[in-house]
């Protein structure tokens, strides 16, 4: 099952484009994500037939139809569970899950958490547009408080969920965030997610230009994004700003603060990012309103995967008991013969 066939000719982006017409609204952020995926896949040297995209329900979940790979458009919120059964029993496949903030964090929150804690080797892309698009504009679990939508004409009164914190809290071994229109960064993060040996969670800040336009404007607008985005780099100090003159430092009580570099403060005082450090991801994911939005990899650590654990146990059982013998199994325990 694990034999790898090297394709004769290098695959191109076109090889990953299906014959189906893409049906997202013009201007939707999903187009960019689809394009980045189709761009990076040829670089990964995986036979096309070994790729499977599994999705739930929602705009994002139409993704598999547009990929010329194996694809399974399933039901609302359940993609991580379905992908788990597939990946555990088919370790030879590369399984990606495409979900959204409603699909993955509302109806499917439970499955997302458990797939991550198990460390099933599936790559989960959560397109976060902070709105229900396919059902035409209701607020989502990531919508800001007091969001006025069709279903909340007086404003929503439930506090939004923080996808990165959920993933970290679920003991995910790879947690990252990127932005639909930041194509370079996105490609880099998708590749890192692919390379990670374990489950990967990637939140992609994505614009719904019909029902929640400009929800991420502060991090996508050319004029403001440098001041509002903190690009996380492994073992590098946390510096941001148009002029790269702002940084993040920890106070004595371990709370972060934004400082301006130059004068009395130099880089050596800044917090240095480390993807493997426990707690680092939590600090960064909870910076709050007066801080830039971090993008990049919050956490990347190694842990036994669920797939490995399962197969090691099965192999050990075969070594200890020999290959299963049905006749013996049927005749197990006390038996007697009637003449």
């Amino acid at each position: 099952m694990s034999e790898v066939t090297i394709p004769d000719a290098k695959l191109t982006r076109k090889d990953f484009t299906s014959d189906q017409e893409v049906r997202w609204c013009p201007g939707c952020g999903d187009y960019s994500i689809l394009a980045q995926m189709q761009k990076i896949l040829p670089e990964l040297d995986i036979p096309r037939e070994n790729l499977v995209f599994v999705s739930g329900i929602g705009c994002a979940s139409r993704f598999p139809y547009y990929m010329n790979t194996y694809g399974f458009h399933t039901i609302h919120g359940r993609a991580p569970a379905i992908a788990t059964g597939l990946k555990v029993s088919r370790p030879d496949l590369h399984v990606w899950v495409v979900t959204g903030d409603g699909d993955g964090l509302s109806i499917g929150g439970n499955h997302l958490i458990h797939a991550l804690r198990r460390n099933v080797v599936i790559k989960i892309l959560l397109f976060n547009n902070r709105i229900y698009g396919l059902t035409k504009g209701q607020y989502s679990p990531t919508s800001e408080l007091f969001k006025v939508t069709k279903s909340t004409p007086y404003g929503s009164v439930d506090y939004p969920i923080n996808p990165i914190e959920i993933a970290l809290g679920a003991e995910a071994t790879f947690v990252a965030r990127t932005i639909d229109v930041d194509v370079k960064h996105q490609q880099e993060i998708l590749k890192r997610a692919h390379e990670h040996k374990g489950s990967a969670f990637v939140e992609i800040l994505q614009n719904c230009n019909v029902y929640n336009d400009l929800a991420w404007e502060s991090v996508t607008d050319r004029n403001t994004k440098a001041d509002n985005t903190l690009v996380l780099e492994h073992r590098k100090p946390l510096i941001f700003g148009k002029n790269r003159d702002k940084g993040i430092r920890l106070r004595r009580d371990m709370t972060p603060e934004v400082v301006t570099l130059g004068g009395e403060i130099d880089q050596s005082e800044l917090l240095v990012h480390d993807e493997t450090k426990p707690g680092m991801g939590h600090i960064l994911s909870r910076l709050g309103a007066h801080f830039p939005t971090p993008i990049g990899i919050f956490r990347a650590v190694k842990r036994m995967t669920f797939d490995q654990g399962t197969h090691v146990q099965m192999d050990n059982a075969k070594k200890k008991l020999g290959p299963g013998n049905l006749e013996a199994m049927l005749n197990r325990g006390d038996t007697w013969v009637v003449e």
């Binding site: 359940r78 788990t84 597939l86 990946k87 555990v88």
Partner: peptide
Amino acid sequence: GAAVGAAYGG
């Protein structure tokens, strides 16, 4: 769901 995923995989 996992059973369906496994069935999809053969």
